[in-house]
Amino acid sequence: MRGAELGELATFLVVARHRSFRQAAVERDVASSAISHAIRSLEERVGVRLFHRTTRSVSLTEAGERFLAELSPAFDQIGQALDGLNSFRDTPFGTVRINVPKSIAPFVLHDVMGPLLRQNPGLRLDVVATDRLVDIVEDGFDAGVRFGERLSQDMIAVRIRPRLRFAVVGSPAYLDGRTPPQVPGDLEDHACIRYRYPGGAIFNWQFQRQGKVVDVEVDGPVTLDDQELMVEAALQGCGLAYVWDDRVTASLASGALVRCLDDWCAFDDGLFLYYPSRRHLSAGLRALIDMIKVTGVR
Rank of each mutant, 00 (worst) to 15 (best):
A234T: 14
L261P: 00
G237R: 07
A256P: 14
S254N: 11
Q227C: 06
R259L: 08
P221Q: 01
G270I: 10
A233W: 09
D269N: 14
C265S: 03
G255K: 00
Q236C: 08
D246E: 13
M291K: 14
V213C: 09
D246A: 14
V214F: 08
G239M: 05
C265P: 01
G284M: 02
I289A: 05
G284L: 02
V248Q: 00
L271E: 13
L281N: 14
R278Q: 05
S277V: 05
M291E: 15
D268P: 01
M291S: 08
A256R: 15
C265N: 03
A266T: 11
H280W: 15
T223Q: 00
G239H: 03
E228I: 07
D263A: 12
P276M: 07
L285K: 05
D245W: 04
S254F: 09
A241S: 11
R259Q: 05
G220Q: 00
L273T: 10
F267P: 11
S277Y: 04
D262I: 07
W264P: 07
S282Y: 01
D263F: 07
Y274T: 04
P221T: 06
F267C: 13
V213N: 14
A250M: 14
C260Q: 10
E217I: 07
G284Y: 01
V231I: 12
I289K: 02
V222L: 00
M291N: 08
M230A: 14
C238R: 07
A234E: 10
C265W: 00
S254C: 12
Y242F: 15
T249S: 15
D263C: 07
A256D: 15
R278P: 01
